[in-house]
Nucleic acid binder design. Sequence first.
DNA 1: CACTAAATAAGAATGATTACGATTTAGATT
DNA 2: AATCTAAATCGTAATCATTCTTATTTAGTG
Lengths: 137, 137
Amino acid sequence: MNTFDLALQQLKEKGYKKTKQRERIIEIFASHDQYVPAKKILQDMQEEFPSVSFDTIYRNLYLLSRENMLEATELEGEKHFRLSCGTGHHHHHFICTDCGKTKLIEFCPMESMEEDLKGYEVENHKFEIYGKCPQCG
Amino acid sequence: MNTFDLALQQLKEKGYKKTKQRERIIEIFASHDQYVPAKKILQDMQEEFPSVSFDTIYRNLYLLSRENMLEATELEGEKHFRLSCGTGHHHHHFICTDCGKTKLIEFCPMESMEEDLKGYEVENHKFEIYGKCPQCG
DNA sequence: CACTAAATAAGAATGATTACGATTTAGATT
DNA sequence: AATCTAAATCGTAATCATTCTTATTTAGTG
């Protein structure tokens, strides 16, 4: 089963309605193996739904993020999203500053941080590497 | 020499003018050992300079960042700044999500990434840990 | 004291994101 | 298939951080 059908199935299982707009949003993500800004999703959506509202875009982006179907990160002051990759295991990304495509980084630096953070309660962390991928470099 | 005087001296050496506003901005940073948003700087500034403009704040924040006197990071969609700590050597931070105070992290995960990134041109990276510091936890 | 480039003030403009009332629609029920 | 209801969407306005523009002021120099 491909990522598109998988995502739709997950939505159904969680009791969300299937709408044309929602389908299209997921479709757009499935065809971009990269982080894309909300703005880009809006533009792509407008081709099929000329009167789609900001609200629909953002509401769905956050819904999909909450349900772990999207990963989010802030790049240059704009929120960017991509379909969650893989099996839900923890990972990080190299992000190409040209094309936005990503490379999975399995290594997590938190594994070696316990002793340095005695007394600190860790809630979250971010490890991202930015640069040019082989195609853009 | 304390951080405040050091910063002023650096500005002078680089040929920037000494203004009351600039002095105050640095003073504010020197009294906050933590990441603070531009908004906070503006508010503190207004106590002494009721008619200070956004422009003055942002222009100086970017000037000071460019000159490596401030470190910047994006937290919750807002740019945050803090006085550069230490001797200019590369480091990362634990950032308290309550009080904003930071703890220096000497370890840099990039040291063990070369082989994973063959063919990729690394420009930058971000490693930040978020949570509660001992005082807030 | 006069000069000039740098810095600031005031406020408008921009751009991303959020909010909201009115309308439509998916999916369940009859 | 018709009805119902909560969820989803639309259309638009509001908000918020940030950037820009023009006129004015000021620091430092001669």
